[in-house]
Design a protein around this nucleic acid. Structure first.
Lengths: 150, 150
DNA sequence: CTGTATCCCTGATGATACTG
DNA sequence: CAGTATCATCAGGGATACAG
């Protein structure tokens, strides 16, 4: 029913995997790919990028309202890191009270496309995953949370 | 030079984003999409999936050798979680010494395709990101690491 | 070989209060 | 409004030793 890796897409997927594996394992800590994956792994970055991609331009507090549950501090940290990586721009208007507008850069929009695909995958497969978890937990007779086993 | 979101792919990207945003913000904590994104955000899961996708089938220690720097404990935890989510299968051979083989499920392979795309994006844009970081750090006159600002 | 069980420590993050 | 600064917490994850 599911297709294999090879014929699922344009056929270059295997090559991409090889390339990634080569890069990824070359230096155990400072590898840029790991670095980048680690960054966009975190939930606040992902959600911020989603909302900025959706809205186009947002002020600090507008974004804060949309990203449900984020604290002021974490939004600041997240936006700084995204700005540093060239994913978002930060524009400050010298007014009182201050106005700061954020939006995705071209680089950010190209990243957005990728994480939308990932989010779409998650959305489309969440049922399968939830069912798998239920079966597993039933077999084990206990719950294993994210990093328990302690 | 960069294309916009709209024409970059089949045109449904906007719709996907809407759908994701709807799902993602509906319940601030237990949302399955958040759950899933959070899981595949972590570096060990991603790397394990890469290597299993590359090799097909791997024993515990074979995988451990390939995933540079992972501890025994974290490999166990990672594999349990992936198994629980239906991403990998775990087959135990009743031999002495024990042999345990892991491989991706169909679900896992379909996920692999997505994270390969993300990894490929990271690989292709790592230079831009590294340069952006340099410029930012030069402007700021100091380094901001992942979550400092303390 | 393939795990489990402990101990421990650091970094990520929320809460709160303060500032330009 | 848009942050910074500080404090406190706690889960992620390494090291190590033990087990089937």
């Amino acid at each position: 029913m599911e297709r294999t890796i090879v014929d699922y897409q344009e056929g270059s997927v295997q090559e991409k995997l090889q390339k990634i594996l080569g890069d990824v394992e070359e230096d155990g800590g400072t590898c840029p790919i790991r670095n980048i994956l680690v960054r966009f792994s975190d939930k606040w970055s992902t959600l911020s990028i989603f909302h900025l991609g959706d809205a186009g331009t947002l002020r600090f507090n507008e974004l804060k309202k949309r990203v449900d549950g984020i604290s002021q501090r974490m939004l600041t940290v997240t936006l700084r890191n995204l700005e540093r990586d060239g994913i978002v721009t930060r524009r400050v208007y010298p007014e009182i009270p201050p106005r700061v507008e954020y939006q995705l850069t071209d680089l950010g929009r190209s990243l957005l496309v990728q994480i939308i695909e990932l989010g779409d995958w998650a959305s489309n497969h969440s049922n399968q995953i939830i069912e798998a978890r239920s079966r597993f937990d039933a077999r084990e007779g206990r719950v294993i949370d994210s990093v328990s086993l302690n």
